[in-house]
Design a protein around this nucleic acid. Structure first.
Length: 462
RNA sequence: GUGGUUGUAGCUCAGUUGGUUAGAGCGCCUGAUUGUGGUUCAGGAGGUCGUGGGUUCGAGACCCAUCUUCCACCCCA
């Protein structure tokens, strides 16, 4: 009996063409990460649930994919009890959930740092490119399985790292030719504002509402605050922040005055000022006081990258977390990191037509298979070409010529070599150029020369 | 989690107010052409109409449930 093929909601297959494009993006990201001193690591797809829960805020926790244990509690009961239980419940699913799929790469990384602290050197800088899973409802640019490309540094609270990360964003997106805006804010500033308004205990509710400013407008934000029980004073405060205009310098000055009573807030303003003053003046970096970011663990700078030309969520995000490792028992270790959303970057690049031609990466020459002897003979010649870095393959079966030629066409292979019994005897092999239809009879040496000297430059012009 | 939307051949889609045997294009297979492809021509295979119920003499079409697709909200990469 056959099963209708289908995929779990929010997951996708990746075809070769897609993968080649994804690898194009990944190659650029890896190159940039390495250039700034980050080394690769990986962590398991699953973690113990306790590792993940409580780190992502209320909403985030709901989206963590729990893995049900195979061991059902029911199985541990005696038959008599099972019967009794089945009478009460139609179905039985209270398996203990011991593991969960990773929700992001940052929290597993914090766990990794603590657990492997004896084998790494601080400040530790790693990059990590792996899928993460979220039990979200899929929509445009949103999947249940998607790749994050993270770079993080732990073990230093130096603001030089903030500058590095801004530049990494700038450089990576410039290499990809994706126009972006990098938004920056600072949790300390948000905390300072909350402190000034006397609502420090409700920072998250406050920032979540503030974050929606550009979407629902000032009145919308005020309405949400009202609904959540914030008084008029808070709503007025938001109004003042929303009303701030001018250069980054002027905005910072105004905020500084507004929250002058908060030491934390002042520190945040200083940090923001440092980053803005010392980064590349050409960097597409802009201060955005409404930027909040939902993840609970951020404590300092926070970043978000958007592609203004495409109506999609953010393509990147990150920030500083002063004590994420503390929950795993290692205190006083500040970290900072950023993430690139591979799948969204792909969608943006696709929409903007930014992918280079990926065809040229395919096979350069296909050997037609005329039979067992001929196929084996061809394979040896193909191997000689492979040793010379020429992408070559032999059609594995001695199928009809039509089918083999068709295969070459479909895969966009520019050359085929035909070696039948005649050619084997004479040592003169037929090389055919598929686009022009031209064919020549070449000796082994001539053939090797042809593909090492001409083929790559030849290809692409037709 | 809330609201909407979608599902018919491998793919993209037609299918009238419910009415005989569900169609097209592309793709696939075979042949014209036993060792020369793209074009052309002739023929062929392929469908539990997402799934399960229901209404009806009769359902691809109507109703309910469920899964899936896409979109918006929430939130996020």
């Amino acid at each position: 009996m056959s099963v209708k093929p289908s995929l779990p909601k929010g997951t996708r297959d990746m075809l070769p063409e897609t993968m080649l494009r994804r690898e194009y993006i990944l190659d650029i990201l890896k190159k940039v990460f390495k250039k700034y001193g980050f080394a690769p690591i990986e962590t398991p797809a699953m973690e113990n649930v306790e590792t993940l829960t409580g780190k992502y805020g209320e909403e985030g926790d709901k989206l963590i994919y729990k893995i049900r244990s195979n061991k059902s509690l029911r199985d541990k009961l005696s038959d008599k009890k099972k019967v009794a239980l089945d009478e009460i419940y139609d179905f039985w699913l209270p398996q203990k959930s011991e593991m969960a799929l990773r929700y992001d790469l940052t929290v597993p990384f914090a766990r990794f740092v603590v657990q492997n602290q004896n084998d790494i050197h601080f400040p530790f800088k790693r990059y990590q490119i792996q899928p993460v899973w979220r039990a979200d409802r899929p929509q445009k640019g949103r999947f249940r399985e998607f790749y994050q490309c993270d770079a993080d540094a732990v073990g230093s609270d130096s603001l030089l790292l903030e500058l590095d990360f801004v530049r990494i964003y700038q450089e990576a997106f410039a290499s990809l030719k994706v126009p972006v805006q990098i938004k920056i804010n600072n949790r300390k500033v948000l905390a300072g504002i909350a402190e000034t308004l006397g609502i420090s205990d409700r920072l998250t509710d406050f920032t979540v509402a503030l974050d929606k400013l550009d979407k629902v407008g000032l009145e919308g934000v005020k309405a949400e605050l009202e609904k959540k029980g914030f008084d008029q004073k808070v709503q007025d405060g938001i109004g003042r922040i929303a009303g701030l205009k001018g250069s980054a310098k002027e905005i910072l000055k105004a905020v500084e005055e507004m929250i002058s009573g908060s030491e934390t807030g002042k520190k945040g303003v200083e940090e923001l000022r440092f980053v803005l003053e010392n980064c590349d003046p050409e960097a597409p970096l802009a201060i955005d006081l409404t930027l909040a970011r939902g993840l609970d663990y951020y404590t300092g700078a926070i970043f978000e990258v958007v592609a203004p030309d495409v109506n999609l969520g953010s393509v990147g995000g990150g920030g500083r977390y002063d004590d994420l490792t503390a929950i795993f028992g290692m205190k006083g270790l500040s970290g900072i990191g950023i993430s690139f959303g591979l799948d969204r970057i792909y969608l943006v690049m696709e929409e903007l037509g930014l992918f280079p031609d990926v065809e040229a990466e395919g096979t350069e020459v296909l050997f037609i298979n005329f039979g067992d002897q001929e196929g084996l003979f061809s394979l040896k010649l193909a191997n000689e070409l492979r040793d010379l870095q020429v992408k070559a393959e032999v059609y594995p079966d001695s199928s009809k010529l039509r089918k083999q030629m068709d295969f070459a066409n479909k895969k966009n292979i520019p050359y085929v070599v035909l070696i039948g019994s005649e050619e084997m005897k004479s040592g003169q092999f037929t090389v055919k150029h598929m686009h022009s239809g031209e064919q020549h009879s070449l000796s082994r040496i001539e053939l090797l020369q042809h593909f090492t000297e001409n083929a790559s430059s030849d290809y692409g012009r037709h």
